[in-house]
Every structure is written in structure tokens, then in C-alpha cells.
Design a protein around this nucleic acid. Sequence first.
DNA 1: AACGGCAGCTGTGTATACACTGATGCTGCC
DNA 2: GGCAGCATCAGTGTATACACAGCTGCCGTT
Lengths: 218, 218
Amino acid sequence: MRASDKAYAALRDDIIEWRLAPGTVLAEVEQSERLGVSRTPLREALGRLTAEGLTTAGGRGVVVTDISLEDIDELFELRETLEGRAAALAARRGDAATFERLQRELLDAPRLVSGDNPALHDYYELVGRLDTAIDAAISNSYLAQAMRSLRVHLVRIRRLAADDAGRLTAAAAEHAAIAEAIAAGNPGLAEAATVVHLHRSLSHVKAIHASHPKEHHG
Amino acid sequence: MRASDKAYAALRDDIIEWRLAPGTVLAEVEQSERLGVSRTPLREALGRLTAEGLTTAGGRGVVVTDISLEDIDELFELRETLEGRAAALAARRGDAATFERLQRELLDAPRLVSGDNPALHDYYELVGRLDTAIDAAISNSYLAQAMRSLRVHLVRIRRLAADDAGRLTAAAAEHAAIAEAIAAGNPGLAEAATVVHLHRSLSHVKAIHASHPKEHHG
DNA sequence: AACGGCAGCTGTGTATACACTGATGCTGCC
DNA sequence: GGCAGCATCAGTGTATACACAGCTGCCGTT
């Protein structure tokens, strides 16, 4: 693995996991020493992060981008636009069997998130497979790329939301509804189901955020 | 101006103006000598181009990204998604007076593109102001950013389309219809007008492309 | 005491030297 | 004559040294 990849992955993780708080200035020498790479690959890593919007290349140094409540609204507005369309396109172009299978798995997902030993990793992996299946089904690399760049920021927010078993169970049902609509080849329903899901997710995130405005890291 | 900015601007222009054909390998030493900068800022420029999708960082060296006919379809599919939503949001949130003024200017635009001495630059500037006004009206930086990154590729395609006076006159009327719908605060109409405009643009581009498949630069 | 200017420093921007990897072409052996 | 192995090299990846700009704090002057 290249040094720049290593630096990029480390910084990206630090930002997403809120170990580097918004507003933190990433000085080149400081970070290059901390991560054990030279300034050159570190600069490349910072460039990539800035291109993704995780950092901002303001006048003096690179700064970790802030995510405020208004940003969350904007983010979900774009997300609704992109994922709504993606779901509709997937319903037209996707393979029904693939999404039927995903629907069945999602309907069985509640057992992953509840109980004594919740397998959250398996749950997120399953949801990720739905995203991947939609990406593949739309066969539009530009749209897929736009959604990928959006998901980086969403992961950052998920860390704030601290999803509970109740929300995850409901989300699994919503995801199953999306998969069902796609499998049925119903674009309008797929888009509607996606919009509903995203609105509920947003409400949840904002409710959490409003009740614990200061608790960023745990 | 920094050397990396200079290299970035030069390469970006070369790609957009089709002086660097798709598939061209951009070797670091070669380009750094050609542009009169060192390899370090050149690499930063290549990184930015790759992040925008104008180049691809395949295994050996950076390659100018290809734009095929299928890419154009995909591009316009995303464009319809983003700009349709943007027009709808602008209709809800925008300032009516701003878009009324733009509408009047656009209705007067046909005189810019026809006659003995067409002022194409003024025309494109006017259309650009409509884009800018919409960007500002939606007050969603993520959506605006997504559209900005899309427009880079569209400029590349515009070079292929070689717009004629007839198409530009029609396009001006379509733009005016969009501005009118936004000024009237009618989101559905604004989105519909945008979708219509984009479909006609796409048809035009594909017609040109089908009749002159090889003529990339002139 | 307050303000202006200068010096030092911190940190980014750029250039260049070195390392390493993958490819290519030659040479020697079969 | 063909193929395998090696040497050379072209090109990227990384490190480091140098240049330069903006800021900060001190000192001198008024």
C-alpha cells in the first residue's frame, strides 16, 4: 500500500470517526510526523480529502469540514434527489431476483439488531449490499459516483445518530419495502419508498441531534 | 498564481477543448516540462483532474477520460435529476424579481446568436448567470457542488455539439420558460421545463454526434 | 503608553534527488 | 530459431531541501 493511501485512509477514518473534530487544522508537518509518512504523500491525501469535501483548503492549512444541522438538511435533500432517482431507475433496469433475495434478507434483518448480541456489522453489510445492488442496477456511473461521494458524509452523520435497535428495525422494514418495489419493477413506488425511508432517517437523526447537541464522540 | 493552479488550468483547458484527446497518457515528466512546472505541483493538478473525472488514474500513469455516446446518456440522466430538482427548489426559495429579469433577458437573447456578428460569448454568459442564480436560490451547497462537478463534463460535450444559431435560439426560449416558472414560484412547472430543455439538448447533441462521429476538433 | 516597523518564525509551495517497480529488449542457452 | 532469464530503463512514489509568504511579538520612537 502506498504511503499516500495509508495517510488518506488514516485521516479519512479519523474524520469519519470524529477523532478529528470539525475545525481542526491539519498542519502538514504535524500530520506527516504523526502518520509516519513524508509531506509529499500527505499532501496528496489532503487533496483527496478536500476533493471529497471532508476537509476545506482555506487560506492557511487544511481544516476538517464542519457538519451542522443545516448541512444535514441539505445533505438529505440531495440524497433524496439522487437515491430517489436511483431507486426508480433500478426498478426499471434491475434484476428482479436479486432484489427479491435482498428483500427476504432485509425482512429477516430485525433479528440481527436486537437481542443480547446484536450483529450490527452484519446489518450494515446487508444494507450496504442493497446500495451496491442499486448502484449496479442503474448502470449509470455518474449517478453512482455522485451517490458514493455523498455516502462519505452520511457515514459521518451516522456516527452522530447512534442508531438504536428500534430505529434499525424500522429502517430494515423500510429498506425491504424499497427492495420489494424494485423487484416488482415499479419505479414510482421505489422512489416513494426511498423518500419515505430518507425522511424517517432524517427525523431520527435530527431528534437525536436535538437531544444531545454536544455529544459527538463516545 | 501557484504553479499547481497554472498546471491544473492548462491541462483542464487542454482536455475540455479536445487538444488532449481521450486516451492520451499524461506522463508526469513530459507534462511538467511542457507546462514549465515541477513534478510536484503537476501531480497535484493531475490529482484534481482525476477527482473531477476528467482523467483516470489507471495503473500506469494518468489517462484522459473518454466520453462515449453512452456516457452522454448517463450524464444527461444525472443532469436531469439534479437540475430538475434544483429548478423546483429555486421556484420555492428563489427571488421572483431576479428570475423575472433573467427571463426578460433570455427572451431577448435570440438577437445575440443570430445575425452577422453573433455575440456567443454574451449568450453563454447569460445562460451561465441563470445557472448561478439557480445555484444561489436553492441554498444547498451539496446540490450546487454536485451540479458544478457535472458542468465540467458538459462543457466538454458542448465542444462536440457545435451549437448552431437555430438550436441556441430555441434553447434561449427554453431557458426563458424555466426562468418564468421559477419566477412564478411553480416548482412542478420549473422542473418540467428543465426536463424538456435537457431532453431537447440531448437530442441535439446526439443528432450532431451521429452525423459527424469523427469530428472532434475543428 | 500606544503605535509603527522590523525581525524571526511557522508553515505552505516548489524543486530535485533517490528508490522502487514494471516493462522491454537483448543475449545466451537449449 | 525460439524461449527463458537478466539487464537496462522509463516512469511513478517518496523524501527532503530550499524559497517564500503571512503572522506574531518585540523594540524603538513619538
